[in-house]
């Protein structure tokens, strides 16, 4: 897209005619791969649920009702109620907001930190690159959850800190990915010719290299976001993420585990919500790869 913008108008029109646009390609992929389209639709549904939570949820997700403790699913409470008489359905709906926030913002953080570092490492190479990559190796040596547990312990448990921990855990992947892409792209003829024309480092990186690696980074994000969503649920489940009474799917499952025999419905829906969201993201991600990378 960015490449077309730099072309003269007539040429750009030509290029658009020859290459189907992103929207058209998305439509073609959607028709060819209904599973991916369905995944994307479900993800959008969750986004709608997260944004519209105050209007969709019939009850206040944190309001307790002592007359409705651990009631089985009914017409008034389709997902049942929990140990404090809160409405399960409302809590699952509000939970979408927390999960989405954690998933999207943590990966954004990883991109904001990881991509520039990878860009610099891949572009300048040499000693700096070596240093960055050794540090990245050490960073990667911490299993994701162990790192997140450590960070959350240092920062204190909360949604923001869990998001930061997950984001920092995902950062090395982005450093490596970006560096690899930059190494490959720098060798391309158009980058070499731009350099020969006297383009500076910043212009080369920002104008010629970055636009060409964006799609790979976006595709990686669609793989990383469901992982981050599950990571948030895990941290909250362990008591290291979102704190009660906020309705996080992980926290809800933590409570549910204590009442498995008396109130199994408490465990069904939050987990199912995570599962369906992650599955849809993965399906949509496969489709997006085809849309953004017509060569692949």
């Amino acid at each position: 897209m960015a490449r077309e913008a730099t072309l003269p108008l007539a040429l750009a029109g030509d290029a658009a005619a020859r290459r189907p646009g992103v929207v058209r390609r998305a439509w073609l992929v959607a028709r060819r791969r209904p599973a991916a389209a369905a995944g994307a639709a479900v993800v959008l549904l969750y986004v709608g649920m997260a944004l519209g939570a105050p209007w969709i949820a019939p009850f206040d997700p944190v309001r307790t009702d002592w007359s409705q403790i651990r009631k089985a699913p009914s017409r008034a409470h389709p997902f049942g109620t929990d140990d404090l008489g809160r409405d399960g359905f409302s809590r699952v709906v509000w939970g979408a907001r927390i999960s989405m926030q954690a998933g999207v913002f943590s990966i954004l953080l990883a991109i904001v930190i990881g991509v520039p570092i990878g860009l610099v490492a891949g572009y300048y190479r040499g000693g700096l690159d070596q240093l960055i990559m050794r540090l990245t190796d050490a960073w990667l040596a911490f299993p994701f959850l162990i790192l997140a547990i450590g960070l959350v312990t240092i920062l204190g448990p909360s949604l923001t800190n869990a998001t930061i921990a997950i984001g920092l855990g995902a950062t090395p992947t982005y450093i490596r990915l970006t560096r690899g892409l930059v190494l490959a792209t720098s060798a391309e003829d158009y980058v070499q010719s731009a350099r020969a024309l006297g383009a500076g480092d910043v212009r080369l990186m920002g104008r010629h290299i970055l636009p060409n690696i964006v799609s790979a980074i976006v595709v990686q994000a669609t793989v990383a976001i469901p992982t981050a969503i599950i990571a948030e649920a895990v941290l909250s489940f362990l008591g290291l993420g979102v704190q009660p009474p906020a309705p996080s799917w992980g926290t809800m499952l933590n409570t549910a585990q204590q009442f498995l025999e008396q109130a199994p419905w408490m465990a069904y829906w939050p987990g199912l919500a995570i599962f369906v969201l992650a599955l849809s993201f993965n399906l949509a991600g496969d489709g997006l790869r085809d849309v953004l990378d017509p060569r692949g």
Partner: peptide, 15 residues
């Protein structure tokens, strides 16, 4: 396999 990647393993455990 896709389901296996997407399912949170602690929920699988609880179920």
């Amino acid at each position: 396999s896709l389901c296996g990647v997407s399912v949170p393993n602690f929920w699988l455990g609880i179920m």
